[in-house]
């Protein structure tokens, strides 16, 4: 937040102008920078895992470009490694990524005046991290009497945050792919994927409903793992979500 304040001109000068496009862009890059520290190892591990899961290097990199969603990419690589039918991979990825609709709904009012190419570009860059940073910019007041529409160039802030993340993700994927090809299977680096997921899930368990979701989804996944076509996975996910909703109601 300090970066944002520094990037904006002092209140008196702002009576006429919104921050320039360049100013907004670099403030966006600065805003996402601390998050990139966490994304860096994540991208590396994705690259390494995609290779140890048996994906060709081209495909592993292409996935970062085409899908551009960390957790879904991990899951796709993992499912592909155990020869999951493609339909199930697609359905699982579609379920895992559905949260992006929520982000889209959240930023949509702020992007209304933009041209369609701008909207499409920002939509492509709308990851968990870019959303978290961009929304802080839009949360700043826009209509105080001295600051006429100071958010006029805020889409450049969004672009700065989104591109910062995009470049980091593509580069770390490439490095991971390169490193992954040199690592022998005996190092069991594929185990770092379940570990990554554990590291992501456990801190998310903040209340009883979340805990019940995890317990039900986990128990169901073990009970139905023999279902054909890996349908057990989708079944377990849906059961977990329903259990969470029910627990929350009480």
């Amino acid at each position: 937040m300090n970066n944002l304040q520094k990037a904006n001109p002092p209140a008196l000068e702002a009576a006429i102008a919104a921050p320039s496009a360049a100013c907004e862009f670099w403030a966006g890059v600065k805003g996402v920078a601390p998050i990139l520290l966490g994304v860096f190892p994540f991208g590396l591990i994705y690259g390494i895992l995609a290779i140890s899961a048996g994906l060709p290097a081209m495909m592993a990199q292409a996935m970062s470009l085409i899908v551009f969603a960390g957790s879904a990419q991990f899951i796709i690589a993992q499912l592909a490694a155990v020869n999951t039918p493609l339909v199930i991979i697609a359905i699982t990825a579609a379920v895992v990524n559905i949260r992006h609709m929520l982000y889209s709904a959240s930023v949509a009012p702020h992007l209304r005046r933009l041209s369609t190419p701008w909207q499409m570009l920002l939509a492509y860059l709308l990851t968990d991290e870019a959303y978290a940073v961009a929304i802080t910019r839009y949360a700043q007041p826009a209509d105080s009497p001295t600051q006429q529409d100071t958010r006029r160039n805020a889409h450049w802030f969004f672009l700065g945050a989104g591109l910062g993340l995009w470049i980091t993700w593509q580069l770390t994927t490439a490095i991971g792919i390169f490193v992954g090809a040199q690592i022998p299977a005996s190092w069991e680096l594929d185990f770092s994927l379940p570990l990554t997921f554990i590291a992501l899930v456990v801190p998310m368990i903040k209340d009883r409903a979340a805990l019940i979701t995890v317990v039900v989804a986990g128990a169901a996944s073990l009970l139905v793992f023999h279902m054909p076509l890996k349908l057990g996975l989708v079944t377990a996910i849906l059961l977990g979500i329903m259990a969470g909703l029910l627990a929350e109601r009480q």
Partner: peptide, 26 residues
Amino acid sequence: RIKLPGLMQRALRFVPLAALTAITLP
């Protein structure tokens, strides 16, 4: 500005929890 149906909005929070658990545990 169309709001997601309330049930769907509440369900979204459980999606990563359920998905990551169901993938990891087996």
